[in-house]
Design a protein around this nucleic acid. Structure first.
Lengths: 193, 193
DNA sequence: AACTATCAATAATG
DNA sequence: CATTATTGATAGTT
Protein backbone atom coordinates (compact mmCIF):
# COMPACT_ATOMS: atom_id res chain seq x y z
CA UNK A 1 0.00 0.00 0.00
CA UNK A 2 2.73 2.38 0.93
CA UNK A 3 4.98 2.83 -2.10
CA UNK A 4 4.16 -0.57 -3.46
CA UNK A 5 6.93 -2.14 -5.37
CA UNK A 6 9.25 0.79 -5.17
CA UNK A 7 11.81 -0.91 -7.30
CA UNK A 8 9.54 -0.79 -10.27
CA UNK A 9 9.00 2.90 -9.96
CA UNK A 10 12.66 3.63 -9.62
CA UNK A 11 14.20 1.26 -12.05
CA UNK A 12 11.51 0.55 -14.51
CA UNK A 13 12.85 -0.70 -17.83
CA UNK A 14 16.30 -1.24 -16.49
CA UNK A 15 18.52 -4.18 -16.89
CA UNK A 16 16.70 -6.15 -14.22
CA UNK A 17 14.01 -8.27 -15.73
CA UNK A 18 12.38 -9.09 -12.47
CA UNK A 19 11.30 -6.09 -10.43
CA UNK A 20 10.41 -8.24 -7.47
CA UNK A 21 12.82 -7.77 -4.63
CA UNK A 22 11.45 -10.51 -2.45
CA UNK A 23 9.34 -13.56 -2.84
CA UNK A 24 6.92 -11.97 -0.50
CA UNK A 25 4.98 -13.97 1.95
CA UNK A 26 5.10 -17.65 1.22
CA UNK A 27 2.73 -20.28 2.32
CA UNK A 28 3.99 -22.41 5.18
CA UNK A 29 2.83 -25.65 6.61
CA UNK A 30 1.34 -25.55 10.05
CA UNK A 31 3.76 -27.79 11.82
CA UNK A 32 6.44 -27.16 14.35
CA UNK A 33 9.20 -25.03 12.96
CA UNK A 34 12.44 -26.82 13.53
CA UNK A 35 14.92 -24.09 12.85
CA UNK A 36 15.24 -22.27 16.12
CA UNK A 37 15.83 -18.84 14.82
CA UNK A 38 12.98 -18.91 12.41
CA UNK A 39 10.72 -20.27 15.11
CA UNK A 40 11.58 -17.44 17.43
CA UNK A 41 10.91 -14.86 14.78
CA UNK A 42 7.63 -16.44 13.92
CA UNK A 43 6.65 -16.66 17.54
CA UNK A 44 7.38 -13.03 18.08
CA UNK A 45 5.51 -11.90 15.02
CA UNK A 46 2.51 -14.09 15.48
CA UNK A 47 2.19 -13.44 19.16
CA UNK A 48 2.07 -9.77 18.38
CA UNK A 49 -0.53 -10.44 15.75
CA UNK A 50 -2.55 -12.61 18.08
CA UNK A 51 -2.62 -10.02 20.81
CA UNK A 52 -3.56 -7.35 18.35
CA UNK A 53 -6.43 -9.45 17.12
CA UNK A 54 -7.53 -10.02 20.68
CA UNK A 55 -7.39 -6.32 21.42
CA UNK A 56 -9.47 -5.53 18.40
CA UNK A 57 -12.01 -8.19 19.21
CA UNK A 58 -12.25 -6.94 22.72
CA UNK A 59 -12.87 -3.38 21.66
CA UNK A 60 -15.17 -4.18 18.78
CA UNK A 61 -17.39 -6.53 20.69
CA UNK A 62 -17.00 -5.43 24.27
CA UNK A 63 -15.66 -8.77 25.33
CA UNK A 64 -13.25 -9.68 28.08
CA UNK A 65 -10.32 -11.54 26.72
CA UNK A 66 -7.33 -13.01 28.38
CA UNK A 67 -4.50 -14.87 26.78
CA UNK A 68 -1.72 -16.72 28.47
CA UNK A 69 1.18 -17.92 26.45
CA UNK A 70 4.06 -20.01 27.59
CA UNK A 71 6.95 -20.12 25.25
CA UNK A 72 9.32 -22.98 25.44
CA UNK A 73 11.89 -20.85 27.16
CA UNK A 74 9.63 -20.70 30.15
CA UNK A 75 8.54 -17.22 29.52
CA UNK A 76 5.01 -16.13 29.97
CA UNK A 77 3.27 -13.71 27.76
CA UNK A 78 -0.14 -12.64 28.78
CA UNK A 79 -2.74 -10.48 27.25
CA UNK A 80 -5.72 -8.81 28.75
CA UNK A 81 -6.94 -8.46 32.27
CA UNK A 82 -5.75 -11.95 32.91
CA UNK A 83 -5.93 -11.76 36.64
CA UNK A 84 -9.51 -10.67 36.64
CA UNK A 85 -10.43 -13.28 34.13
CA UNK A 86 -8.67 -16.00 35.97
CA UNK A 87 -10.35 -15.00 39.13
CA UNK A 88 -13.72 -15.25 37.49
CA UNK A 89 -12.74 -18.47 35.92
CA UNK A 90 -11.54 -20.01 39.12
CA UNK A 91 -14.51 -18.82 41.06
CA UNK A 92 -16.62 -20.95 38.88
CA UNK A 93 -14.26 -23.85 38.94
CA UNK A 94 -12.96 -24.01 42.47
CA UNK A 95 -12.98 -27.74 42.32
CA UNK A 96 -10.10 -27.67 40.04
CA UNK A 97 -7.89 -26.58 42.83
CA UNK A 98 -9.40 -28.88 45.34
CA UNK A 99 -9.11 -32.07 43.42
CA UNK A 100 -5.83 -31.07 42.12
CA UNK A 101 -4.13 -30.31 45.35
CA UNK A 102 -6.21 -32.47 47.56
CA UNK A 103 -6.80 -29.61 49.92
CA UNK A 104 -9.92 -27.96 51.14
CA UNK A 105 -9.54 -24.94 49.06
CA UNK A 106 -13.08 -24.65 47.89
CA UNK A 107 -14.71 -25.23 51.21
CA UNK A 108 -17.85 -23.24 51.50
CA UNK A 109 -17.40 -21.67 48.16
CA UNK A 110 -20.32 -23.19 46.43
CA UNK A 111 -22.81 -22.69 49.21
CA UNK A 112 -26.21 -23.64 48.02
CA UNK A 113 -27.21 -25.50 44.93
CA UNK A 114 -25.76 -28.58 43.44
CA UNK A 115 -22.07 -29.04 43.39
CA UNK A 116 -20.27 -28.70 40.19
CA UNK A 117 -20.05 -32.37 39.51
CA UNK A 118 -23.71 -32.87 40.09
CA UNK A 119 -24.52 -30.22 37.60
CA UNK A 120 -22.02 -31.68 35.31
CA UNK A 121 -23.80 -34.92 34.99
CA UNK A 122 -26.36 -33.37 32.79
CA UNK A 123 -23.88 -32.38 30.18
CA UNK A 124 -22.10 -34.29 27.62
CA UNK A 125 -19.93 -36.76 29.22
CA UNK A 126 -19.00 -39.37 26.71
CA UNK A 127 -17.35 -37.45 23.97
CA UNK A 128 -15.38 -35.51 26.45
CA UNK A 129 -13.97 -38.48 28.18
CA UNK A 130 -13.05 -39.88 24.87
CA UNK A 131 -11.18 -36.83 23.88
CA UNK A 132 -9.63 -36.60 27.26
CA UNK A 133 -8.44 -40.14 27.21
CA UNK A 134 -7.02 -39.72 23.81
CA UNK A 135 -5.18 -36.68 25.00
CA UNK A 136 -3.80 -38.51 27.97
CA UNK A 137 -2.96 -41.49 25.96
CA UNK A 138 -0.93 -39.57 23.54
CA UNK A 139 0.78 -38.11 26.54
CA UNK A 140 0.56 -34.78 24.94
CA UNK A 141 -1.04 -31.82 26.39
CA UNK A 142 -4.61 -31.10 26.10
CA UNK A 143 -6.78 -29.41 28.24
CA UNK A 144 -9.66 -28.03 29.50
CA UNK A 145 -12.14 -25.69 30.18
CA UNK A 146 -15.08 -24.47 31.92
CA UNK A 147 -18.30 -22.76 32.36
CA UNK A 148 -19.88 -19.96 34.16
CA UNK A 149 -21.45 -16.70 33.88
CA UNK A 150 -19.71 -13.46 33.95
CA UNK A 151 -20.13 -9.95 32.88
CA UNK A 152 -18.35 -6.71 33.18
CA UNK A 153 -17.33 -3.79 31.19
CA UNK A 154 -14.54 -4.29 28.76
CA UNK A 155 -12.80 -1.17 27.73
CA UNK A 156 -9.27 -1.10 28.85
CA UNK A 157 -6.88 -3.71 27.75
CA UNK A 158 -3.56 -4.56 29.18
CA UNK A 159 -0.75 -6.70 28.15
CA UNK A 160 2.03 -8.13 30.19
CA UNK A 161 5.06 -10.14 29.58
CA UNK A 162 6.13 -12.03 32.59
CA UNK A 163 9.46 -13.65 33.09
CA UNK A 164 10.17 -16.32 35.65
CA UNK A 165 11.45 -14.02 38.31
CA UNK A 166 11.09 -10.79 36.57
CA UNK A 167 7.91 -9.13 35.64
CA UNK A 168 8.12 -6.99 32.59
CA UNK A 169 4.79 -5.36 32.05
CA UNK A 170 4.00 -4.05 28.68
CA UNK A 171 1.28 -1.59 27.98
CA UNK A 172 -0.67 -1.82 24.82
CA UNK A 173 -2.25 1.16 23.29
CA UNK A 174 -4.84 0.41 20.74
CA UNK A 175 -4.92 3.31 18.37
CA UNK A 176 -6.46 2.81 15.03
CA UNK A 177 -4.29 0.23 13.51
CA UNK A 178 -1.04 0.78 15.22
CA UNK A 179 -0.21 -0.76 18.52
CA UNK A 180 2.71 0.55 20.40
CA UNK A 181 4.55 -1.45 22.96
CA UNK A 182 6.17 0.03 25.96
CA UNK A 183 8.32 -2.21 28.04
CA UNK A 184 8.73 -0.74 31.45
CA UNK A 185 11.61 -2.96 32.30
CA UNK A 186 13.49 -2.02 29.24
CA UNK A 187 14.85 -5.43 28.54
CA UNK A 188 16.50 -4.22 25.44
CA UNK A 189 18.20 -6.32 22.90
CA UNK A 190 16.10 -9.33 23.48
CA UNK A 191 12.74 -9.68 22.01
CA UNK A 192 11.76 -11.99 24.78
CA UNK A 193 11.00 -15.21 23.12
CA UNK B 1 -8.96 -18.07 -4.59
CA UNK B 2 -11.78 -20.42 -5.14
CA UNK B 3 -13.64 -19.32 -8.23
CA UNK B 4 -12.62 -15.72 -7.89
CA UNK B 5 -15.15 -13.31 -9.20
CA UNK B 6 -17.38 -15.95 -10.59
CA UNK B 7 -19.75 -13.39 -11.95
CA UNK B 8 -17.16 -12.19 -14.41
CA UNK B 9 -16.51 -15.62 -15.73
CA UNK B 10 -20.13 -16.38 -16.19
CA UNK B 11 -21.45 -13.15 -17.45
CA UNK B 12 -18.50 -11.41 -18.96
CA UNK B 13 -19.52 -8.77 -21.45
CA UNK B 14 -23.11 -8.91 -20.45
CA UNK B 15 -25.43 -6.14 -19.67
CA UNK B 16 -24.03 -5.63 -16.21
CA UNK B 17 -21.30 -3.05 -16.23
CA UNK B 18 -20.08 -3.85 -12.78
CA UNK B 19 -19.18 -7.48 -12.26
CA UNK B 20 -18.61 -6.92 -8.57
CA UNK B 21 -21.24 -8.61 -6.51
CA UNK B 22 -20.14 -7.26 -3.16
CA UNK B 23 -18.09 -4.43 -1.83
CA UNK B 24 -15.80 -6.99 -0.34
CA UNK B 25 -14.15 -6.43 2.94
CA UNK B 26 -14.25 -2.85 4.04
CA UNK B 27 -12.07 -1.17 6.55
CA UNK B 28 -13.73 -0.63 9.89
CA UNK B 29 -12.82 1.50 12.83
CA UNK B 30 -11.71 -0.32 15.93
CA UNK B 31 -14.37 0.86 18.30
CA UNK B 32 -17.28 -0.84 19.91
CA UNK B 33 -19.85 -1.95 17.40
CA UNK B 34 -23.15 -0.53 18.47
CA UNK B 35 -25.49 -2.53 16.33
CA UNK B 36 -26.10 -5.69 18.24
CA UNK B 37 -26.50 -8.05 15.39
CA UNK B 38 -23.44 -6.89 13.61
CA UNK B 39 -21.48 -7.09 16.81
CA UNK B 40 -22.49 -10.65 17.39
CA UNK B 41 -21.55 -11.66 13.90
CA UNK B 42 -18.22 -9.97 14.21
CA UNK B 43 -17.60 -11.56 17.56
CA UNK B 44 -18.28 -14.97 16.19
CA UNK B 45 -16.12 -14.51 13.15
CA UNK B 46 -13.22 -12.94 14.91
CA UNK B 47 -13.27 -15.30 17.82
CA UNK B 48 -12.96 -18.13 15.36
CA UNK B 49 -10.12 -16.35 13.68
CA UNK B 50 -8.41 -15.65 16.96
CA UNK B 51 -8.56 -19.25 18.07
CA UNK B 52 -7.30 -20.40 14.74
CA UNK B 53 -4.37 -18.06 15.00
CA UNK B 54 -3.67 -19.33 18.46
CA UNK B 55 -3.77 -22.91 17.28
CA UNK B 56 -1.36 -22.16 14.50
CA UNK B 57 1.00 -20.30 16.76
CA UNK B 58 0.92 -23.12 19.23
CA UNK B 59 1.78 -25.69 16.63
CA UNK B 60 4.33 -23.66 14.77
CA UNK B 61 6.27 -22.60 17.79
CA UNK B 62 5.53 -25.29 20.34
CA UNK B 63 4.02 -22.83 22.71
CA UNK B 64 1.33 -23.34 25.29
CA UNK B 65 -1.53 -21.01 24.72
CA UNK B 66 -4.72 -20.47 26.57
CA UNK B 67 -7.43 -17.99 25.84
CA UNK B 68 -10.39 -17.08 27.94
CA UNK B 69 -13.11 -14.99 26.47
CA UNK B 70 -16.10 -13.60 28.25
CA UNK B 71 -18.72 -12.32 25.95
CA UNK B 72 -21.21 -9.84 27.20
CA UNK B 73 -23.91 -12.40 27.20
CA UNK B 74 -22.15 -14.11 30.01
CA UNK B 75 -20.75 -16.87 27.96
CA UNK B 76 -17.26 -18.13 28.20
CA UNK B 77 -15.23 -19.28 25.30
CA UNK B 78 -11.93 -20.83 26.02
CA UNK B 79 -9.11 -22.11 23.98
CA UNK B 80 -6.21 -24.27 24.88
CA UNK B 81 -5.17 -26.04 28.01
CA UNK B 82 -6.53 -23.24 30.09
CA UNK B 83 -6.46 -24.95 33.42
CA UNK B 84 -2.94 -26.08 33.09
CA UNK B 85 -1.90 -22.69 31.95
CA UNK B 86 -3.71 -20.97 34.72
CA UNK B 87 -2.09 -23.19 37.23
CA UNK B 88 1.30 -22.38 35.86
CA UNK B 89 0.40 -18.78 35.70
CA UNK B 90 -0.64 -18.76 39.30
CA UNK B 91 2.59 -20.30 40.34
CA UNK B 92 4.36 -17.32 38.99
CA UNK B 93 1.93 -14.84 40.40
CA UNK B 94 0.53 -16.42 43.52
CA UNK B 95 -0.24 -13.17 45.22
CA UNK B 96 -3.11 -12.68 42.92
CA UNK B 97 -5.29 -15.25 44.58
CA UNK B 98 -4.96 -14.04 48.09
CA UNK B 99 -7.02 -10.98 47.62
CA UNK B 100 -9.50 -12.73 45.50
CA UNK B 101 -10.51 -15.21 48.07
CA UNK B 102 -10.17 -12.91 50.97
CA UNK B 103 -7.15 -14.71 52.24
CA UNK B 104 -9.18 -17.68 53.28
CA UNK B 105 -8.08 -19.79 50.46
CA UNK B 106 -4.95 -20.89 52.12
CA UNK B 107 -6.74 -21.78 55.28
CA UNK B 108 -5.46 -24.99 56.63
CA UNK B 109 -2.40 -24.55 54.64
CA UNK B 110 -1.33 -21.25 56.06
CA UNK B 111 1.11 -20.59 58.76
CA UNK B 112 4.72 -20.34 57.95
CA UNK B 113 4.72 -23.11 55.47
CA UNK B 114 4.40 -22.71 51.78
CA UNK B 115 1.03 -21.83 50.40
CA UNK B 116 -0.89 -24.39 48.53
CA UNK B 117 0.05 -22.98 45.20
CA UNK B 118 3.65 -22.97 46.17
CA UNK B 119 3.50 -26.54 47.17
CA UNK B 120 2.07 -27.34 43.84
CA UNK B 121 5.38 -26.67 42.29
CA UNK B 122 6.78 -29.69 43.97
CA UNK B 123 4.04 -31.90 42.74
CA UNK B 124 5.07 -34.72 40.58
CA UNK B 125 3.41 -34.70 37.22
CA UNK B 126 2.51 -38.29 37.49
CA UNK B 127 0.68 -37.79 40.70
CA UNK B 128 -1.17 -34.94 39.24
CA UNK B 129 -2.14 -37.05 36.34
CA UNK B 130 -3.53 -39.57 38.70
CA UNK B 131 -5.59 -37.00 40.47
CA UNK B 132 -6.79 -35.84 37.17
CA UNK B 133 -7.85 -39.23 36.03
CA UNK B 134 -9.70 -39.87 39.24
CA UNK B 135 -11.46 -36.58 39.17
CA UNK B 136 -12.59 -36.94 35.66
CA UNK B 137 -13.45 -40.53 35.98
CA UNK B 138 -15.76 -40.05 38.86
CA UNK B 139 -17.17 -36.71 38.09
CA UNK B 140 -17.08 -36.52 34.38
CA UNK B 141 -17.61 -33.03 33.16
CA UNK B 142 -14.89 -30.99 34.56
CA UNK B 143 -12.10 -30.63 32.44
CA UNK B 144 -8.74 -30.57 31.85
CA UNK B 145 -5.56 -32.09 31.31
CA UNK B 146 -2.07 -32.19 32.22
CA UNK B 147 1.13 -31.96 30.48
CA UNK B 148 4.17 -33.43 31.97
CA UNK B 149 6.51 -30.62 32.70
CA UNK B 150 4.97 -28.45 30.06
CA UNK B 151 7.10 -29.96 27.44
CA UNK B 152 6.45 -32.08 24.46
CA UNK B 153 5.27 -31.12 21.10
CA UNK B 154 1.90 -29.59 20.70
CA UNK B 155 0.09 -30.90 17.74
CA UNK B 156 -3.41 -31.38 18.80
CA UNK B 157 -5.43 -28.47 20.00
CA UNK B 158 -8.80 -28.42 21.51
CA UNK B 159 -11.40 -25.81 21.72
CA UNK B 160 -14.52 -25.60 23.74
CA UNK B 161 -17.43 -23.35 23.98
CA UNK B 162 -19.19 -23.57 27.23
CA UNK B 163 -22.62 -22.34 27.99
CA UNK B 164 -24.13 -22.06 31.40
CA UNK B 165 -25.77 -25.36 32.19
CA UNK B 166 -24.95 -26.70 28.82
CA UNK B 167 -21.62 -27.79 27.67
CA UNK B 168 -21.16 -27.74 23.97
CA UNK B 169 -17.75 -29.10 23.21
CA UNK B 170 -16.22 -28.26 19.94
CA UNK B 171 -13.33 -30.11 18.51
CA UNK B 172 -10.79 -28.35 16.47
CA UNK B 173 -8.83 -30.10 13.87
CA UNK B 174 -5.90 -28.24 12.60
CA UNK B 175 -5.22 -29.51 9.14
CA UNK B 176 -3.22 -27.49 6.79
CA UNK B 177 -5.24 -24.39 6.39
CA UNK B 178 -8.72 -25.59 7.05
CA UNK B 179 -10.09 -25.92 10.49
CA UNK B 180 -13.27 -27.81 10.85
CA UNK B 181 -15.59 -27.37 13.71
CA UNK B 182 -17.67 -30.15 15.07
CA UNK B 183 -20.28 -29.28 17.60
CA UNK B 184 -21.30 -32.42 19.37
CA UNK B 185 -24.33 -30.84 20.89
CA UNK B 186 -25.63 -29.64 17.64
CA UNK B 187 -26.91 -26.40 19.02
CA UNK B 188 -28.06 -25.37 15.63
CA UNK B 189 -29.31 -21.99 14.76
CA UNK B 190 -27.39 -20.20 17.40
CA UNK B 191 -23.78 -19.53 17.04
CA UNK B 192 -23.41 -19.10 20.70
CA UNK B 193 -22.46 -15.52 21.13
C1' DA C 1 -24.14 -19.89 6.91
C1' DA C 2 -21.77 -19.24 2.21
C1' DC C 3 -19.54 -16.01 -0.97
C1' DT C 4 -16.52 -12.33 -2.73
C1' DA C 5 -13.86 -8.34 -2.89
C1' DT C 6 -10.99 -6.11 -0.14
C1' DC C 7 -8.04 -5.31 3.74
C1' DA C 8 -4.68 -7.05 7.03
C1' DA C 9 -1.05 -10.36 8.58
C1' DT C 10 3.22 -12.11 7.70
C1' DA C 11 7.32 -15.15 5.27
C1' DA C 12 11.07 -14.00 3.08
C1' DT C 13 14.44 -10.47 2.30
C1' DG C 14 17.46 -6.25 2.93
C1' DC D 1 14.11 -4.10 12.61
C1' DA D 2 12.13 -2.10 7.58
C1' DT D 3 10.17 -3.66 3.12
C1' DT D 4 7.46 -6.17 -0.01
C1' DA D 5 5.01 -9.65 -2.23
C1' DT D 6 1.94 -12.86 -1.09
C1' DT D 7 -1.28 -15.43 1.67
C1' DG D 8 -4.87 -15.25 4.85
C1' DA D 9 -8.73 -12.96 7.43
C1' DT D 10 -13.05 -10.86 7.18
C1' DA D 11 -16.92 -6.87 6.21
C1' DG D 12 -20.58 -6.65 3.55
C1' DT D 13 -23.86 -9.05 1.03
C1' DT D 14 -27.09 -12.89 -0.25
Amino acid sequence: MQTPNLAVKQRNGRKQQNPKTTKGRQRIEIKEIQEENRRQVTFSKRRTGLFKKAAELSVLCGAQIGIITFSRCERIYAFGNVNTLIESYLRKTPVMLRSYYGGDVATGVDGDGPMWWERAVESVPEEEMDEYMKGLNGLRENLWTRICEMSGDPTAQMNAQICPDLMAPVNWKLMDENLTVKNDQGQAGYDGY
